[in-house]
Amino acid sequence: MKLLVCVTQTPETTTTPSFSADNTEFNTAGVNYIMNPYDEWYALVRALELKEAAGGSVSIVNVGPGTNDTVIRKGLAIGADDATRINAEPKSAMYVAKQIAEFAKAGGYDVIFLGKESIDYNGAEVGSMLAEYLDMPFVSFGTKLEMNGNTATINRDIEGGEEVVEVATPFVISAAKGLAEQRIPNMRGIMMAKRKPLNVVEPVAFDDPAVVVSYDLPNAKSAVKMVDPENMDELVRLLHEEAKII
């Protein structure tokens, strides 16, 4: 099976975001970048497991500048066979989806994996756009994926529960928690990754249809009001009369 995993780079989860003085740019200074957890822990690992079970290849694709190569190499160290970076600044979901679609359309991939969402912009948009460009079915938020020949059985998260669906290859899937178990790259993987191909290709021309023009920080919380543990009637009263929430 030919498998493609879309990976993106995001600020590490403990990052406190800050912005330029005019609030138009995210400050990247001092920010540690990681591979988006959904891409690394679940999408990539499940793709590797399928390859280990049935043969084939796992390729990585990223739309991003050269500074993303560290994260891409990590994907190779975890076990992907090769990687392609589409050399462009990702500014909108549709731009990214368009670039990946152009790259993937002649690739003959059986399954294209993405993460459920990127943890920085929390868009959850690229997957359905990519599926639309490629005219493929899209199964979002997969928590379990079993292949039987060309047919996949997938459990997916829905509001307050889960759904089990069947779909034939080729298809696009976004990975949620549960699809696989995180793998830590070992020394051998890290050494081998250095010799694996990381191809760089140029983007196709496409205008960003929607872009971030400014940022804000949420209003700071006022100080916590402590309530006497012996007096829970008081807490209920505050929630009722002051917060007016119950």
């Binding site: 600020p11 943890i119 912009y121 929390n122 804000d216 920080l217």
Partner: peptide
Amino acid sequence: VFSGKAIA
């Protein structure tokens, strides 16, 4: 964005 740590 940033899981509620900022607004875009």
